[in-house]
């Protein structure tokens, strides 16, 4: 409580100093003065994000604290952006939650920025996999995950890195070889070109729609002839 009050007062001081027109770098509080944004701190604005390395992140994601916090669900599942009105009309995602000095500039940071242990890294593919669409290597929509732009770009970069380091595997497209290119004495034609995922169920299990004779009471009623021969019918009516 005491620490919290102190940090708030310091924040007030710093903002008043900023308004006084001094340079930012001079008024920048050190982490010891501003305080650290540990996971239990709810309002994080102006505090510094603690720095952890990848080993700590991996062990944290295996710990009971992580399981209790996220209940085994992806870390973005329980996150809700604060916006007024409908989901479709929400404002664009924010550019960053942590400024260049390493301080939070918002209170409700995105699901990666808000947890002190979390950051995207190719050595921990488990975290990246939480942000991929089911069964693909495509990241989820940015508005669905609630990430800030900065973290979303980091996600794309680390996803590519994880793929290139073999941490996240994917279906490599099938390479068809024409043996005649490689062996001058080979004469056989190459077989059909195939591609992974190119095989669909209708190809192997052709199941065409069958037209059954249905009871159609309106057949042979010559409706289309009615207006052509209307005069004749009309005359009859008269």
């Amino acid at each position: 409580m005491l620490r919290c009050g102190r940090s708030i007062s310091q924040r007030l001081i710093s903002t008043s100093q900023l308004s006084a027109g001094q340079k930012k770098t001079e008024t920048l509080p050190t982490p010891e003065e501003a305080g650290w944004a540990f996971n239990h701190v709810e309002k994080k604005k102006g505090l510094y994000k603690p720095k952890h390395n990848i080993e700590e992140q991996i062990s944290y994601m295996k710990s009971k604290a992580y399981l209790d916090a996220y209940q085994g669900l992806p870390v973005h599942r329980s996150y809700k952006r604060n916006f007024k009105g409908q989901y479709m009309l929400q404002p664009p995602p924010r550019l960053f939650c942590i400024d260049k000095h390493g301080r939070f500039n918002v209170n409700h940071a995105c699901p990666i920025c808000r947890d002190e242990y979390l950051f995207f890294d190719f050595r921990n593919p488990g975290l990246i996999l939480q942000f991929l669409q089911d069964g693909t290597v495509q990241p989820l929509d940015i508005l669905k995950t609630g990430l800030c732009r900065e973290q979303y770009n980091l996600l794309s970069a680390q996803l590519l890195k994880a793929k290139e380091h073999g941490k996240i595997t994917f279906g490599v497209e099938f390479r068809n070889f024409d043996y005649r290119q490689y062996y001058p004495w080979w004469t056989e034609e190459p077989s059909r070109q195939v591609s992974r995922g190119g095989l669909t169920l209708p190809d192997i299990h052709p199941d065409p729609l069958i037209e059954f004779d249905a009871f159609k009471p309106e057949t042979k009623t010559w409706w289309d002839q009615y207006w052509l021969r209307h005069d004749k019918f009309a005359k009859k009516g008269k």
């Binding site: 069964g135 290597v137 495509q138 595997t169 994917f170 279906g171 995922g197 169920l201 199941d207």
Partner: peptide, 19 residues
Amino acid sequence: IFRSRRISTPQNRSHYALM
């Protein structure tokens, strides 16, 4: 051979067939 692999574009829907 036909095991599931992570693909590049999301699949729209699964196809179930009764035979």
